[in-house]
């Protein structure tokens, strides 16, 4: 909260940059769908999870500007996200969801 921001003047990227990112996202989505048809064996779950997380982080960081914006935004958003992850994972664990 201490920082003086360079607020809304700086918006990170050019339109071409956004298009590039969208293409990357599209490619990952294609790969995700591919896992449904091609057998990835033991890599299946980890690969799928990693791709999901990558897509999530890319959209949040670039399209939502978290990477360029004040860190406070990142804090409040990820606080909610990790809190959700934590409490719900524990709750599911008590139902033996992961075993």
């Amino acid at each position: 909260m201490t920082t003086e921001t360079h607020s809304s003047t700086e918006h990170g990227m050019s339109n071409a940059g956004y298009v590039k990112i969208a293409l990357i996202l599209a490619a990952i989505t294609a790969l995700e769908v591919a896992t449904y048809y091609v057998d990835f064996g033991p890599l299946f779950m980890p690969a799928l999870m990693i791709m999901m997380v990558v897509k999530f982080v890319v959209v949040v960081s670039y399209f939502m500007h978290l990477k360029f914006d004040n860190k406070l935004f990142t804090w409040v958003f990820y606080a909610g996200l990790f809190l959700a992850l934590g409490v719900y994972a524990v709750a599911l664990a008590t139902f033996h969801f992961f075993s």
């Binding site: 409040v76 958003f77 990820y78 606080a79 909610g80 996200l81 809190l83 959700a84």
Partner: peptide, 9 residues
């Protein structure tokens, strides 16, 4: 939006 994470979670 932080709050919405708990909703969808």
């Amino acid at each position: 939006l932080g709050s919405e994470c708990l909703l969808f979670g």
